[in-house]
Lab assay of single mutants.
Amino acid sequence: SSGGSSILDRAVIEHNLLSASKLYNNITFEELGALLEIPAAKAEKIASQMITEGRMNGFIDQIDGIVHFETR
């Protein structure tokens, strides 16, 4: 797709992000992006959206560029 990722790509990214949230206590956007094979800024945006929508527990430290995952 030309304008970003398809629905399937997005679903795969979100699935992998949720998997990462179970493996890590926290991770930088750079590391997360590398893990998900997407730019760091996109990793931040998707993580932020999932947390806001209540689909993933955690919070974002924008100063240090880190996602902190919280286990249920």
Score class of each variant (00 low, 15 high):
residue 55 R to N: 04
residue 27 I to S: 02
residue 28 T to I: 02
residue 2 S to C: 11
residue 6 S to P: 14
residue 7 I to L: 13
residue 5 S to H: 09
residue 10 R to Q: 14
residue 65 G to T: 03
residue 59 F to T: 07
residue 39 P to Q: 05
residue 32 L to G: 01
residue 26 N to G: 06
residue 64 D to K: 15
residue 39 P to V: 05
residue 49 Q to F: 04
residue 29 F to D: 00
residue 29 F to H: 00
residue 65 G to E: 06
residue 61 D to W: 05
residue 22 K to P: 04
residue 61 D to C: 09
residue 57 N to Y: 08
residue 32 L to E: 00
residue 20 A to S: 05
residue 24 Y to A: 04
residue 15 H to Y: 09
residue 59 F to G: 03
residue 8 L to Q: 11
residue 24 Y to Q: 05
residue 1 S to I: 10
residue 44 E to V: 15
residue 7 I to V: 12
residue 66 I to A: 07
residue 22 K to T: 08
residue 37 E to G: 15
residue 38 I to V: 08
residue 43 A to D: 01
residue 71 T to Y: 07
residue 47 A to C: 12
residue 32 L to W: 02
residue 41 A to V: 10
residue 37 E to R: 13
residue 32 L to R: 00
residue 45 K to G: 07
residue 72 R to Q: 13
residue 71 T to H: 13
residue 20 A to K: 06
residue 61 D to Q: 05
residue 65 G to Y: 04
residue 58 G to I: 03
residue 8 L to R: 11
residue 65 G to I: 02
residue 57 N to C: 13
residue 37 E to T: 07
residue 6 S to V: 14
residue 59 F to M: 08
residue 10 R to Y: 13
residue 61 D to I: 08
residue 8 L to C: 14
residue 9 D to G: 06
residue 9 D to H: 05
residue 57 N to H: 11
residue 69 F to D: 02
residue 20 A to E: 04
residue 68 H to S: 06
residue 21 S to N: 03
residue 38 I to T: 02
residue 14 E to D: 04
residue 31 E to T: 06
residue 67 V to I: 15
residue 57 N to P: 09
residue 37 E to H: 14
residue 22 K to I: 08
residue 31 E to R: 07
residue 54 G to R: 06
residue 14 E to H: 04
residue 37 E to N: 15
residue 36 L to Q: 01
residue 4 G to I: 12
residue 17 L to A: 02
residue 22 K to S: 06
residue 25 N to G: 08
residue 17 L to K: 01
residue 32 L to I: 04
residue 2 S to D: 13
residue 7 I to S: 12
residue 50 M to S: 01
residue 60 I to A: 02
residue 7 I to C: 13
residue 1 S to C: 13
residue 52 T to P: 00
residue 50 M to E: 00
residue 26 N to C: 15
residue 2 S to G: 11
residue 66 I to F: 06
residue 19 S to D: 11
residue 31 E to M: 08
residue 12 V to P: 05
residue 17 L to C: 04
residue 4 G to K: 12
residue 69 F to I: 04
residue 19 S to L: 15
residue 70 E to C: 13
residue 1 S to E: 14
residue 40 A to K: 07
residue 19 S to M: 15
residue 62 Q to F: 14
residue 14 E to C: 05
residue 68 H to F: 11
residue 26 N to Y: 15
residue 53 E to N: 07
residue 38 I to E: 01
residue 16 N to T: 08
residue 58 G to W: 08
residue 33 G to H: 03
residue 57 N to I: 11
residue 9 D to N: 06
residue 30 E to T: 09
residue 2 S to F: 02
residue 48 S to C: 13
residue 48 S to M: 11
residue 3 G to I: 10
residue 61 D to H: 07
residue 71 T to F: 07
residue 70 E to W: 08
residue 49 Q to A: 09
residue 28 T to D: 03
residue 62 Q to D: 09
residue 24 Y to F: 11
residue 1 S to P: 12
residue 33 G to N: 01
residue 4 G to P: 14
residue 66 I to S: 09
residue 30 E to D: 09
residue 12 V to Y: 10
residue 2 S to L: 07
residue 47 A to E: 00
residue 46 I to Q: 00
residue 39 P to Y: 03
residue 46 I to K: 01
residue 28 T to N: 05
residue 34 A to T: 09
residue 70 E to Q: 10
residue 6 S to M: 10
residue 41 A to T: 09
residue 50 M to T: 01
residue 5 S to P: 10
residue 69 F to P: 01
residue 31 E to V: 07
residue 29 F to A: 02
residue 71 T to C: 10
residue 29 F to R: 02
residue 52 T to N: 14
residue 11 A to L: 12
residue 42 K to V: 15
residue 14 E to Q: 04
residue 9 D to W: 03
residue 23 L to F: 09
residue 35 L to P: 00
residue 2 S to Y: 01
residue 14 E to T: 03
residue 70 E to M: 07
residue 58 G to D: 01
residue 29 F to N: 00
residue 72 R to V: 12
residue 7 I to R: 10
residue 60 I to W: 03
residue 72 R to T: 13
residue 21 S to T: 06
residue 14 E to P: 01
residue 13 I to P: 01
residue 49 Q to S: 08
residue 37 E to D: 14
residue 30 E to M: 08
residue 59 F to R: 12
residue 50 M to I: 03
residue 51 I to H: 01
residue 54 G to L: 04
residue 58 G to H: 02
residue 27 I to D: 00
residue 36 L to M: 05
residue 1 S to M: 06
residue 29 F to G: 00
residue 14 E to W: 04
residue 55 R to Q: 06
residue 27 I to A: 05
residue 46 I to V: 07
residue 8 L to Y: 09
residue 58 G to A: 11
residue 34 A to F: 10
residue 18 L to K: 07
residue 18 L to I: 12
residue 31 E to K: 09
residue 13 I to K: 04
residue 62 Q to Y: 15
residue 64 D to I: 11
residue 8 L to N: 11
residue 6 S to K: 12
residue 19 S to T: 14
residue 17 L to G: 02
residue 43 A to E: 00
residue 44 E to W: 08
residue 16 N to R: 14
residue 59 F to Y: 14
residue 52 T to M: 12
residue 15 H to I: 12
residue 36 L to C: 05
residue 24 Y to G: 05
residue 38 I to D: 00
residue 65 G to N: 06
residue 45 K to F: 13
residue 5 S to M: 07
residue 37 E to P: 01
residue 20 A to Y: 15
residue 24 Y to C: 07
residue 27 I to R: 04
residue 66 I to D: 04
residue 23 L to D: 07
residue 54 G to M: 04
residue 35 L to A: 04
residue 36 L to S: 02
residue 47 A to F: 05
residue 2 S to E: 14
residue 51 I to P: 00
residue 3 G to R: 09
residue 57 N to T: 11
residue 36 L to R: 00
residue 22 K to G: 06
residue 70 E to H: 10
residue 62 Q to H: 15
residue 42 K to D: 15
residue 62 Q to M: 11
residue 58 G to T: 01
residue 13 I to G: 02
residue 11 A to E: 13
residue 67 V to M: 09
residue 56 M to W: 04
residue 1 S to W: 01
residue 1 S to N: 12
residue 15 H to W: 06
residue 69 F to A: 01
residue 68 H to A: 04
residue 47 A to Q: 01
residue 31 E to G: 06
residue 34 A to N: 11
residue 7 I to F: 12
residue 3 G to C: 14
residue 30 E to N: 07
residue 72 R to F: 13
residue 54 G to S: 04
residue 32 L to A: 01
residue 44 E to M: 14
residue 9 D to M: 04
residue 20 A to N: 04
residue 2 S to P: 12
residue 53 E to K: 05
residue 30 E to K: 09
residue 40 A to W: 09
residue 34 A to M: 11
residue 16 N to G: 12
residue 3 G to T: 13
residue 51 I to R: 00
residue 58 G to N: 01
residue 71 T to V: 09
residue 58 G to K: 01
residue 15 H to F: 12
residue 72 R to K: 14
residue 13 I to C: 05
residue 64 D to G: 15
residue 14 E to R: 03
residue 46 I to S: 02
residue 9 D to I: 05
residue 4 G to F: 02
residue 58 G to Q: 01
residue 62 Q to R: 13
residue 10 R to D: 15
residue 53 E to R: 05
residue 17 L to F: 05
residue 57 N to V: 12
residue 71 T to N: 13
residue 54 G to W: 01
residue 65 G to D: 04
residue 18 L to T: 06
residue 71 T to L: 07
residue 23 L to W: 08
residue 67 V to F: 05
residue 13 I to T: 05
residue 61 D to P: 01
residue 50 M to Y: 02
residue 43 A to K: 00
residue 44 E to N: 07
residue 55 R to A: 05
residue 33 G to R: 02
residue 51 I to K: 01
residue 30 E to Y: 07
residue 48 S to P: 00
residue 3 G to K: 10
residue 42 K to I: 15
residue 36 L to W: 04
residue 16 N to E: 09
residue 60 I to C: 02
residue 15 H to K: 15
residue 9 D to A: 05
residue 23 L to E: 09
residue 55 R to C: 05
residue 12 V to N: 10
residue 25 N to R: 11
residue 71 T to S: 11
residue 29 F to L: 10
residue 64 D to M: 15
residue 29 F to I: 08
residue 60 I to E: 00
residue 69 F to S: 01
residue 17 L to T: 01
residue 70 E to T: 07
residue 35 L to E: 02
residue 29 F to M: 06
residue 9 D to E: 11
residue 27 I to Q: 02
residue 28 T to H: 04
residue 6 S to H: 14
residue 40 A to P: 12
residue 43 A to L: 10
residue 35 L to Q: 04
residue 47 A to Y: 03
residue 16 N to W: 12
residue 23 L to K: 13
residue 36 L to N: 01
residue 30 E to A: 11
residue 63 I to W: 07
residue 50 M to V: 02
residue 10 R to F: 12
residue 58 G to F: 02
residue 46 I to M: 08
residue 69 F to G: 02
residue 40 A to C: 06
residue 7 I to H: 12
residue 17 L to D: 02
residue 32 L to C: 02
residue 6 S to T: 12
